[in-house]
Amino acid sequence: MRTLIALLGFVSALFLHPLLTALCIFFLAFRYASWEAILLGCMTDLIWQPSSISFPYFTLAAILIVWVLGPLRSQFLR
């Protein structure tokens, strides 16, 4: 399941819609201690972020969400 969502996220980052990519990042971070979510955010920013936007928002959001949801995940999810 984790691999499938990560793959969907990578495909979405290249070909589909950014909302789907964001959903994949959120779901991965919510359910798993997912390093894929961080790489997915990083890849999205490296490909699409223009220089006029100073912060890599997808990467920062992915890192934040993965770490913030960590305690919740370890307490309640197997």
Binding site: A33, W35, I38, C42, V66, W67, G70, S74
Partner: peptide, 20 residues
């Protein structure tokens, strides 16, 4: 309630964050 699992997941997250 799950006892904190092994540290490997956390370690991977740290590595991924540093890599980025």
């Amino acid at each position: 309630f799950n006892a904190p699992r092994g540290r490997s997941g956390r370690r991977r997250l740290i590595y991924a964050t540093l890599l980025v």
